[in-house]
């Protein structure tokens, strides 16, 4: 059965704060987006089953206390475990951005495993700089990745806005396996280099803003349906939000680079659900 207008659930509550713009970009990409408070899922007032796409937006859920994403991750992992499991195993796309990525990593959905066992294997920790930053970076995408959200993407300029964005997998073998399974979706690169140039050698601060292992900015699960990244593609939905747009001359099309991710997600849902 094909869905014309996929329904996207955009989680809200407890300090999530990018819900409004995340809803807007899904609408722009052709989905019908709805803000869903986590407790509406807990009480059963809403059910994830009714939706085709799940987005966990950025923010400061529970103030980042006890580590970013942990407390909201626990709400999802313990309070609505079944719903989350069913959603993911039914082949529906999920995206976590910034704090949403932290949530998906801390609850073990990313990088995840085929069994969707929800056990944590990676983490996002304090930037090596020791502080929160809002700055624009350049991402390069892995064209071999199964990620359904990033199909056809090469590079993208996006802001990072985080203090805990250093992606780490202390187990070197495991990290290598994520590479081999092409679960590493995007990495920080120096924009002055030619495409492709993503590499394992550390890209200098601030081009890689947080000293992530092997410059990793975003990963997907083995199926490619669940995707998370620290930077904010929704913040570049239009060119007038770009970091240097006033230097880039006249525009005929004002759609921003970040929209490609949401178009991909909606297209996937439309074609496959």
């Amino acid at each position: 059965m094909m869905v014309d207008t996929p329904k996207a659930a955009v989680l809200t509550g407890f300090g999530i704060n990018c819900d409004v713009e995340t809803m807007a970009v899904f609408e722009m990409a052709g989905a019908e987006a709805q803000r869903v408070h986590v407790n509406q899922l807990v009480t059963g007032a809403d059910s994830l089953e009714e939706f085709h796409i799940l987005a966990v937006p950025g923010g400061f859920s529970f103030g980042d206390h006890l580590g970013s994403g942990r407390l909201l991750g626990n709400r999802l992992r313990f309070a609505i475990r079944e719903q989350v499991y069913d959603f993911v195993t039914s082949g529906k796309p999920v995206i976590g951005i910034c704090n949403g990525f932290q949530v998906l990593v801390k609850m073990g959905l990313l990088p995840g495993d085929e069994e969707v066992s929800l056990s944590q294997t990676a983490s996002l920790t304090l930037n090596d700089s020791g502080h929160y930053e809002d700055r624009w970076v350049t991402l390069e995408f892995n064209d071999a990745s199964p990620c359904v959200w990033t199909d056809g993407l090469e590079r993208m300029r996006v802001p990072v806005r985080h203090g805990e964005g250093k992606f780490v997998v202390p187990d070197a073998e495991l990290l290598q396996r994520y590479f081999e399974q092409e679960q590493v979706v995007c990495r920080y690169v120096d924009p002055s280099t030619g495409y492709p140039s993503a590499a394992d050698e550390p890209v200098a601060y601030p081009l890689c803003p947080n000293a992530s292992m092997r410059n990793i900015a975003g990963v997907c699960d083995p199926s490619g349906l669940v995707f998370g990244l620290m930077p904010h593609p929704e913040a570049n939905f239009t060119k007038w939000l770009g970091a240097t747009w006033t230097r880039e001359g006249e525009q005929s099309d004002w759609e921003g680079e970040g929209m490609a991710i949401f178009h991909n997600g909606v297209k996937y849902a439309r074609n496959n659900l």
Partner: peptide, 15 residues
């Protein structure tokens, strides 16, 4: 100033 989020809400045109 960089350690303030100046772009959340997706609306900041001149930063």
């Amino acid at each position: 100033v960089r350690s303030y989020d100046h772009e959340v809400i997706g609306q900041t045109v001149i930063k």
